[in-house]
Design a protein around this nucleic acid. Structure first.
Lengths: 245, 245
DNA sequence: TAGTGGTCTAGACCACTTT
DNA sequence: AAGTGGTCTAGACCACTAA
């Protein structure tokens, strides 16, 4: 292992090579979400490097929210089942402080073929199978978000309205445990639009009133796009919070 | 220095103590934006710790965008004069790809007294002096954002419309070089609103059309709020891009 | 060639959790 | 007491920049 550093023509430090080896373990499912990976010293022996080098690799992965370190216990694979992961992808906060209970109400779920845009965004071929989900998100039993979610049909073939209705917990935690797809990062494109009649009715606002249009593309390991969604957010009693570091 | 680790009742590791010492150097102006701080080995001698400990302190500060490392050259104090820092706080992207030139057109600048909300947000007393700036932001000579910016009068006392008009470059780089105030992080609260007549005219959109309302509070060292602004973004030809890590 | 940050190692010890 | 991650050190060497 050590030799690769010196010989590699496009130089990549040892700890990054270790990092990608650990990443392989995550992708292959050797260690599943919520489980512990081997200790630093075990990995150091396994990869034949010093503990400090493994440590630096894990440091980076923890900074990327792929792993979670717990002193005295071990290092764990990050999971969307962890309630702390929930607000990482949903940045909606009530105008009047406090914490609210949110519930997801699936409305429809049907099969379709990818059009030009869906194919481009999800990196599919035109006409490939996709699954579309429509959903209403409620905070304290009041509708706040209407979502339309596009998923590659091949990966999510078992998905149906019944499965969605039976599931307690976040959508991403369903995807993770049931379909083995873990969302790692996402890009959101936000605009202001006027409510169409249908959405206005679902959200309980006036036709044509301003809504936040949030278009999201989510990626799994290797920057593969696996979800495309468009949400309309009612910002009458909530706002989208963004922290600029 | 070493002794503090063991003796400290609320344990704080050595490298964090070093970090806060370096932070003091930044706050006090010992090292100014754009300048280099001493080398790791110099700092190690000065603080009487090992180079690795200084390194870990600097690592964290680099991750927080306070310092910028340049291999072979040194470690530099981050500056808003650096063009790379520009898009850290302005997340607007044209719908049709490509890069645009942006220009800031200051409209008005006047003195006022802090009302309840401004006082709360900026942590001032009711009636304290504040300065208000109105500004139009253009991309490729087309208006996209109207901003209203509230600043503590004491800190920004020399600010005027003339100063703003004479300045070439970003607002934050003006604040940094002319007033010694460096913005480190910010929170944005985003909602969708209907355009009022005045803003609609400035932005060249129809009265009542949906706009993004972006309310921002910016903080300097020690999490002190030093700017409050509300911007109305026209998202006819642009969107707000957010990366969810 | 000298100085800077970047990587890697080996070993000691501390803080936290579990048995 | 044993095992985990967390801190700190000292030293060697590599990669990059500038004189």
């Amino acid at each position: 292992m050590r030799a690769m550093v010196a010989e590699s023509p496009t130089f990549s430090p040892l700890y990054r090579q270790i990092k990608s080896l650990i990443l392989q373990g995550l992708e292959s499912g050797e260690w599943r979400p919520g489980e512990a990976i081997p200790s630093e010293s075990d990995l150091a022996i396994r990869f034949n490097v010093s503990q400090g080098t493994v440590r630096k690799a894990i440091d980076e992965m923890a900074a990327e929210n792929l792993l979670i370190r717990k002193q005295g216990k071990g290092t764990f694979v990050a999971s969307h089942a962890d309630p702390r992961a929930f607000f990482r992808f949903l940045r909606l906060v009530p105008l009047a402080g406090g914490v609210e209970q949110s519930t997801s109400r699936p409305l429809e779920c049907w099969r379709a073929k990818a059009g030009t845009e869906a194919a481009r965004v999800l990196q599919l071929k035109l006409g490939d199978a996709i699954i579309i989900v429509r959903r209403l998100l409620q905070f304290s039993n009041r509708p706040v978000v209407v979502d339309e979610i596009y998923l590659p049909g091949e990966i999510f073939s078992g998905l149906s309205l019944e499965v969605l209705k039976d599931w307690q917990g976040s959508l991403y935690s369903l995807f993770e445990t049931r379909f083995g797809v873990r969302m790692i990062r996402a890009e959101e494109r936000i605009r202001a639009v006027a409510a169409d009649r249908n959405s206005a009715e679902l959200l309980g606002v006036d036709d044509g009133s301003p809504l936040l249009s949030v278009e999201r593309v989510s990626f799994t390991y290797g920057d593969r796009p696996v979800e495309w969604r468009r949400g309309l957010y009612s910002t009458a009693e909530h706002y989208y919070l963004n922290e600029l570091g």
